[in-house]
Design a protein around this nucleic acid. Structure first.
Length: 1066
RNA sequence: GCCGAAGUGGCGGAAUGGCAGACGCGCCGGAUUCAAAAUCCGGUUGAGGUAAUACUCAGUGUGGGUUCAAGUCCCACCUUCGGCACCA
């Protein structure tokens, strides 16, 4: 076989590798450095491999092969994430056991993957549906079940170490068990699920579209069901913090951070106003709070809210409770009862989807009750609305319509008060803000008793400040007590304008310097100060001394809502607090802090951290998943089955049709579901685990896949972990990666693994799109310009066009014979329905696995999204042919080398230089995962070699080694023909000599004002002075600079060469 | 709406702040061939210019800025793609 024919070469080597176990990963030998390189294992679907799979697999395979040649022990395994919905849906339709479908699909995937020549250690293949595997998935669940999170040490600890409070212990066994259950990382809760009556089954979120089932379009409602939950929220902080310790793409980290959604803020308690309460009672409560501080759980009649903007508390003009909030019942007044109940019913009937759909218009109902704003003592109405979610924060908010989009919208609709308490610093002249800061600071100092009295200050307006707008602002604040004492004056000697503000003061000397650091446009002058008995109406002492009712009355007259200036849109950014008592004048950041400590001192608020992350709903009402190793006794109390009984294997059932009731499919296995032990009856947990379970820890099982006595051997874990490189699609950026990190951390706390993070480096491969398609649009047989229609809505005729029918006109594509008709050019996601899916089998059949591998790497950067091109595959196929022909004699009958390859003649200096440049380039690119440029460097080298009439083995064999990770079949074949008896998989990777990379002469570009005007060739070792000297003498430079002045000159050395730039004037 | 990524020839894409367009595809021309495929050689950003070589100017989504020098750094904006969904 003289010419390159992959079908002869590839199966031969695949068989060789399998038979010789070439890639078996050494287990006992821990003397060499290790490299654990992991692919996200696939779900073996019925469709078989997609060209997206081999992209990541090829990348990791190249690196695995490269690392082996660099002397590493490489762990590079593959397995199957084989539990899941599609196999079960197929079972429902055909009554084929998912085990059978799964086995078929796995066999097909394995065949396809092996046909691509990946160097996996097939002795480590795992399958999440294998009881020998899921035995340990169940085992890990038991570990989670038997662990509680100790908030003090911030780590998981055995449940046996959970301290039991005396009052619980006193209540007896059952109470203690319940207390423990409340603290386990795996716990039971009632959680709403998507129940579809018509299909008789519970649906996953992705099976529900617009509140109806994906299949059949039946209505779906939310009903509560008993579910297993995992307490991932306890680990939120560590999951967030430890992102800083791993080498992952920043966008992925960012997505995880957003998902965890840490927000700092405060919990603030609002007291529900009760007209029957006396001032004395309220005083007592305030006193109580002041002494004992903010309680862990609020008392009755207290609404606790979470806010990220405690600085806007003065602007909280109403409250909103989630419709599910437990306090709604008790606070709703008789005349609002009917309306509130109706709203709650309506809200609960809606699925999340529906809520979101209808969310365009905010709705809500007044409860009839009022609460007291703890900052200003104002009485504000309490509403319920479904835009407030019970699952986030405390299920209640203080609404600040002036500074929150949703609150604003709601307030507008229901005509609630809007009070501005944050000023936009870009809208207000700097000077005004300056004054506010002054006032705020002064207030605080005065409050602390550090200063007394009033001061009068002057703020000098620089001429650059817009005086007009400043005056306007001043006008607006005329009624504001802070500005009551402002006087304007003009500086006699200049254009400066001044403002005088009266303040309270006694000794200002220690305050002053702070402010000189500020905006250079403004200056602060002290004009005078006068101890004064000014009637200042900012007195929060008054708030504490009076009861709420008194305050309420006061506010009716002196209230804050006398400001009719309602903004047209909420200002949601940070700014400067205004009209906010002790925090007035402070920038948001400080305002938050001061507000919290102010209220904290009164026991009315506390700084808290909230996470968007919710506990992980861990049970499914499906068949094809891991059974829970849990038993319920007759009283309904749960316990884990003993480790010795694992695995709890999946029972066979008669059929896979839904139960018709919202209960798990395993209820059909009636014999299996009930067991007897010691004369007592137990029920098994009938839910199964979600697909995430098996994939949460598979990387650990690869380390020791056959171990029957433990999930893995600690010594092996210690050697191999963590994973050095993990490659997979970005679709797993959040969930899979977050869930495995969570499990890993629990295992870490329990001392089962030694690293806090499982995946040291993560790389996301990009998506591969279908071929680019050009589409023209016709209405009634007439072409229409693509720019004039909405392509996604277009329902006329779509015409697929070939490249010969189109041209580029300006910056868009048009018909070649009518440039006014724009057409659409895009690459679409591969999808079966769109019919643009590329099947790897077909590509391998036509071009071979090496070409497929090479093309996928040559397409572009690994992380990028890029369109497929069959022509591109052909391009790399032609390259492989060139390599072949450069080495193997295509004219000969027998396989033999081309006559150009000799061991007789020595390589030329030029050949060596090209070789070493190539080795350097390819090595660096492989290390940096830049496979596309690595390939182009090999192409350049092959183009060079092909032209050489003599090709000494010394410059050919390294090429074969460089190529081998990319096109391993061909490389092995060439290696053999070159006279080697063994596989090249463990040959040392070629090294380069930097000295040989250097050329004797270099070309120096000569620039004048950054334009290349000439080029000169100089010896490689030339000095900068000599270069400059030669440049000055260059004819073209002399001509171009004649009569002009060279102002400056630069000599630059870069990796690409050297250049000179003359800056010339005149 | 929010978050993230990306905009460079006809296409995929290269370019530690230093000669934009490497490498590949496509196209054009040539060689080889009875012919075709394959292969090999040359050309291929645009505009001007020349018999031709030369040469000149413009050019990395748009507008500003920093710098001797910007595809690359900074600011604002536009477009496309991906993800999220009332998160207080």
């Amino acid at each position: 076989m003289p010419s390159y024919y992959p079908k002869n070469v590839e199966p031969k080597w695949q068989k060789f590798w399998l038979e010789h176990k070439t890639f078996r990963c050494p287990d006992g030998d821990h003397s060499k450095p290790k490299y654990y390189i992991l692919d996200m294992f696939p779900y073996p679907s019925g469709q078989g491999l997609h060209v997206g799979h081999p992209e990541g697999y090829t990348a990791t395979d190249i690196l695995a092969r490269y690392k082996r040649m660099r002397g590493f022990n490489v762990l590079h395994p593959m397995g199957w994430d084989a539990f899941g919905l599609p196999a079960e849906q197929y079972a429902v339709q055909t009554n084929t056991h998912p085990r059978i479908t799964t086995a078929q699909n796995v066999a097909n995937f394995r065949r396809q993957i092996q046909m691509l020549g990946f160097s996996y250690d097939w002795d480590r293949e795992i399958d999440t549906t294998d009881p020998k595997y899921y035995r340990w998935t169940q085992w890990i669940f038991v570990q989670l079940y038997n662990t509680w999170f100790d908030a003090d040490s911030k780590r998981g600890r055995p449940i046996s170490e959970l301290p039991i409070p005396a009052d619980i212990a006193a209540k007896g066994e059952a109470a203690v068990a319940e207390y423990r259950n409340e603290h386990r990382l795996a716990y039971v809760a009632e959680i709403p699920v998507n129940w579809c009556e018509a299909l008789g089954t519970v649906l996953a979120n992705e099976e529900v579209i617009n509140g109806r089932s994906e299949r059949g379009n039946h209505p779906v409602i939310r009903i509560p069901l008993r579910q297993w939950m995992l307490r991932i929220t306890s680990y939120a902080e560590r999951l967030l913090d430890d992102l800083n310790t791993v080498d992952w793409p920043e966008p992925i980290k960012e997505m995880q951070r957003n998902w965890i959604g840490r927000s700092e803020g405060a919990e603030v308690d609002f007291r529900i106003a009760d007209p029957n309460e006396t001032v004395e009672e309220i005083r007592e409560w305030l006193e109580e709070r002041k002494t004992h501080g903010f309680p862990r759980r609020p008392e009755e009649k207290i609404i606790r809210v979470f806010t990220t903007r405690p600085d806007t508390l003065y602007g909280a003009t109403y409250m909103v409770l989630s419709p599910e909030h437990p306090l709604v019942d008790s606070i709703t007044t008789a005349d609002q009862f009917v309306e509130v109940e109706a709203y709650r019913r309506q809200a609960s009937a809606k699925s999340d989807m529906d809520r979101t759909e209808l969310a365009k218009e905010k709705t809500g109902v007044f409860t009839g009750a009022f609460a007291i704003n703890p900052a200003n003592g104002e009485s504000i109405p309490i509403w319920i609305a479904d835009y407030v979610l019970m699952s986030y924060g405390t299920g209640a908010i203080m609404a600040v319509p002036a500074h929150d989009e949703r609150d604003y919208e709601f307030a507008e609709k229901y005509d609630l008060d809007i009070v501005e308490v944050v000023a936009d610093p870009t809208d207000t002249p700097a000077l005004l803000l300056q004054a506010y800061r002054w006032l705020g600071e002064w207030e605080r100092r005065r409050e602390k008793g550090e200063v007394e009295g009033y001061i009068k200050v002057a703020l000098i307006l620089n001429a650059a400040v817009d005086v007009e707008s400043f005056l306007e602002d001043r006008e607006e604040h005329e009624g504001d007590n802070l500005w009551a004492e402002v006087d304007l004056f003009e500086d006699k000697d200049g254009p400066d304008m001044g403002v005088a503000v009266s303040f309270i003061e006694e000794d200002f000397s220690d305050v002053l310097p702070i402010y000189f650091e500020q905006d250079p446009d403004t200056e602060v002058l002290i004009l005078s100060f006068e101890p004064d008995e000014h009637d200042h109406d900012h007195d929060d002492e008054e708030f504490e001394d009076s009861g709420y009712q008194e305050l309420m009355e006061e506010n009716e007259t002196a209230g804050l809502d006398d400001d009719d200036d309602i903004p047209s849109a909420p200002y949601t950014s940070e700014g400067i607090a205004i009209d906010s008592g002790p925090i007035s004048g402070l920038p948001t950041r400080d305002a938050k802090r001061i507000m919290i400590s102010w209220l904290d001192a009164k026991g009315l608020a506390r700084k808290t951290v909230n996470y968007k992350l919710r506990d992980w709903l861990f049970s499914r009402q499906r068949y094809w998943g891991e059974p829970f190793p849990i038993l319920f006794d007759e009283s309904g109390l749960h316990q884990a089955v003993p480790e010795s009984e694992l695995p709890i294997t999946l029972p066979d059932v008669e059929d896979f049709k839904p139960t018709g009731r919202p209960e798990p499919l395993l209820a059909k296995a009636t014999d299996w579901g009930v067991i007897e032990r010691g004369g007592k009856k137990y029920r098994r947990e009938l839910n199964t685990m979600p697909q995430w379970a098996g994939s949460c820890w598979y990387y650990l099982r690869y380390i020791d896949p056959l171990n029957e006595s433990a999930p893995w051997d600690p010594a092996k874990e210690n050697y191999w972990m963590p994973v050095d490189l993990y490659v997979g699609g970005a679709e797993h950026a959040v969930l899979h990666l977050l869930y495995s990190r969570f499990w890993h951390k629990v295992l870490f706390d329990l001392g089962r693994v030694h690293s806090a993070e499982p995946f040291q480096k993560l790389v996301n491969q990009g998506m591969i799109l279908g071929e680019i398609e050009y589409t023209g649009f016709k209405v009634n047989g007439e072409w229409v310009d693509a720019a004039k229609i909405d392509i996604s809505e277009f329902d006329g005729e779509r015409v697929k066009l070939t490249e010969s029918q189109i041209t580029k006109t300006g910056d868009r594509f048009t018909l070649i014979d009518n440039p006014s008709i724009g057409i659409d050019a895009r690459a679409a996601k591969m999808s079966k329905s769109y019919g643009n899916v590329i099947n790897p089998d077909v590509v391998v059949d036509e071009y071979g696995a090496d070409s497929l591998r090479m093309y996928e790497m040559f397409m572009g950067p690994l992380e990028a999204t890029k369109p497929w091109s069959m022509k591109g595959v052909e391009g790399v196929w032609r390259f492989l042919n060139r390599v072949w022909r450069a080495i193997i004699n295509s004219d000969a009958e027998e396989q033999s080398l081309v006559p150009e390859i000799t061991s007789a003649s020595a390589p030329t200096r030029d050949q060596l230089r090209m070789l070493h440049l190539t080795i350097r380039g390819v090595t660096e690119d492989v290390e940096g995962l830049r496979f596309n440029t690595a390939i182009s460097k090999m192409m350049e080298y092959v183009n060079f070699l092909s032209r050489e009439s003599s090709r000494p083995k010394e410059v050919v064999e390294p090429l074969v080694l460089l190529l081998s990770p990319f096109a391993p079949h061909m490389a092995e074949e060439l290696w053999q023909v070159l006279g080697h008896q063994t596989t090249l998989a463990y040959e040392p990777w070629p090294t380069f000599d930097p000295a040989l990379c250097e050329a004797d002469e270099i070309e120096v570009a000569l620039q004048i004002n950054n334009k290349v005007r000439s080029k000169i060739v100089l010896p490689a070792n030339v000095t900068d002075e000599a270069i400059l000297d030669a440049a000055h003498k260059d004819e073209k430079i002399l001509a171009a600079t004649a009569g002009k002045q060279i102002v400056k000159s630069f000599v630059v050395s870069s990796r690409n060469g050297k250049l000179v730039n003359f800056v010339v004037k005149g």
